[in-house]
Computed example of a mutant assay.
Amino acid sequence: MFEIVITPAIITLFSIIVISTIYLLTGFRHYVSSVSKRVTIDDGTSLPSDESDYPSVSIIIYSEDDAENLEPLIHQIFEQDYKSQFEVIVVNDGAVSATKDVIAKLDRTYPNLYMTFTPLQSRSLSRKKLAITLGIKASRYETVILTSGNCCIESKTWLKSMTRHFIQGKEIVIGYATSLIPEGAPNPWKRLHAFDQVRTAVEYLSWAIAGHPYRGNCYNLAYRRSVFFKNKGFSRALHLKYGDDDVFINEVSNSANTAIELSTASIVEVHDPYPQIAHRNAKIRYNYTAKSLRTSARRFFGSCSLAWWALLGSTIAISIVGFPSLIPLIASCVILLTTAIILMFTWRKTSRALGSRPLFVTVPWFMTYEPIYNFYYRIKGFFKRAGNLSWN
């Protein structure tokens, strides 16, 4: 039972186990941990003390049926510890009367609060792209920050955290927003959704940290107006209903002009009353627009999923091939368990750093299920691809 039996099949399978383990611990773990390390670095970096260094800012809020949350968000923005000039432009897309009532209530308190709206007859265009374009054209300042009416900004130094990179000459700042599930909201898949959210964030944030930015977060994104107009806005992606954040950033960003801001103070919370539906829609939209992105990130993280499957499959296979000897099974299980524990601790640290649910025991299962989950949404998106085109 404990005899050491060496056959070509066992050597091959054990080699796959070792190679997959090295790939996961040196590749996948490195990129996952780079995000939490960046949060720690940004938290430890002091904000510029000279208030006059910060640029004047136009904050554009995309508002769509979120008037209830819009009022506290506006209060949070105007209560920011920011001495330089800034204005808030709410682009009303859909809830015309409700949003208008909120602005009418607050514009006397905040003279730098403005509102514009997208024409209701603009059916053949991406309404989100049109709304952002109108907001940027209406802005007075060179630096613009984009967020949404269903967001919450807890820190009073959010604005400073996002704009400090413009002092250093950057043209684009990619921030992060975490989606929170309301208390009592029915969502049996909340742990899987939390894993998928962090998994998606790790993919594009770690790639940007490594010097290859290719997408942003529409709830917390900043860039210069000149970059927007130099690129002719969203003109190259007008056939897509979405992609105002990822496709546009993919076109204009590079390692020299783009900064990543992941300090705890800069992270925005997204409050959606229907998180399950919002997650589903986001998956379908991104899987379609991702075809327009120039990046190798998806291939790399796909290969990490393949390495994890190879590790699991080879462990199962070696237990069968090596039977009745238990030595191959014990050795491969020790490697698998050690790899899983290291990845679980790494993932938990990154999840906490990003303000998401701190998963631990379920991480290996979700890593196994993730490729199937993504494939399901690719199939689902294929049959709903017409809904991602602006001409519909």
Rank of each mutant, 00 (worst) to 15 (best):
M1N: 14
V18F: 09
I22T: 13
Y23C: 15
T26P: 08
Y31T: 09
S33R: 06
I41P: 00
D43Q: 06
D53P: 00
Y62F: 14
Y62D: 03
E71T: 14
F78C: 07
D81Q: 13
K83R: 06
K83N: 10
I89H: 10
V90K: 09
K100S: 14
D101Q: 13
V102M: 07
I103Q: 02
L113Q: 06
T118A: 09
R127F: 02
R127E: 10
C151E: 03
K156W: 00
T163P: 00
H165V: 01
E171A: 04
A177W: 00
F195N: 05
D196K: 03
R199L: 06
T200A: 14
A201P: 02
A208F: 03
I209W: 05
F229P: 08
G233Y: 00
F234I: 02
H239F: 09
L240D: 04
Y242H: 13
G243E: 11
D246H: 02
A256T: 12
L262W: 01
V268Q: 01
H271S: 05
P273M: 08
Q276E: 15
K283A: 14
R299T: 14
G302M: 06
S314H: 07
A317W: 05
S319Y: 12
I341K: 11
L354A: 06
V363Y: 03
Y373P: 04
Y376A: 13
G381E: 05
K384E: 15
